[in-house]
Amino acid sequence: MAQFGIDSYLYAKNSPVHRMNPTTKVVAVLAMVISVAIVKDIYMATFALLLSFLMILIAKLPIKFVARRIWSPFLFILIFAAALLLSGGEGEILWSIGFLDITKESAMDAALILIRATSAIIMLTVLLATTRFDMIVKVLYDLKMPVFLLQILMFSYRYIFVFSDELENMKNSMTSKGFRPTLSMRMFSSIANMLGMLLIKSFERGDDVYRSMVAKGYTGKPTIITKNKMHAKDYAFVSVAIVVALAIHIPALVQSGILNSWI
């Protein structure tokens, strides 16, 4: 499982971010992520990016680790931003390459998307690198996400590790038996049979586990004994996070003139 780098909790276990109450942390980060993902003002987006860097520092996460975690989603966004940049649109033309015109508007749009997406991803990474997954599930339970969905979430999380180990073994055994990728029906059939077998094996195991759990009195409620009781300082922190999350939208609102009637 190490190859996927899932569950990165082990980094720098002792930082203020690690010690924070999980409910506080999840609510505060979610508020920020939602707000940052839709921010329209490029300066505020840059501010959010700086804030996310600050979060990495406070959580004492190695930069290299964070960079590796955000690399593949970042690449996606980069390609998307590049497509947006090259697609042009109306406005002042900055450069012309062949039939493509890069306008000021499209450059601003692409930069905004790149910055706000990166900061949202970094914030989520910090949250997940400093919080155990079962704690996150517990918080979701406290936040009243339906138990039926949470049970599926918890079970799937467990199976992912079983599955990817199993898949790795199957791939190794196929390779050692001389399997080489060629573009032929036989290759597709081999891969499909491998995936099919993986599904069947895991289904049988999952069914057994579930039945034995039910026999032992499992009802679906998370039985984590830890109480995430929030104290005054937690409420204060969440309030500050929500205020910041709302505040970064003020410049865009002022610009669009919605606030003018109030001020």
């Binding site: 996927f4 039926f148 079970f155 679906g220």
Partner: peptide, 27 residues
């Protein structure tokens, strides 16, 4: 009772997850 279906749903969900990581070699 759909609670009975939880293992199946979870297995398929995990498969769906792992399959998204799996790269089919298409030379």
């Amino acid at each position: 009772n759909i609670s009975e279906k939880i293992p199946l749903i979870a297995v398929v969900t995990a498969a769906f997850f792992v399959a998204c990581l799996f790269r089919v070699p298409v030379p």
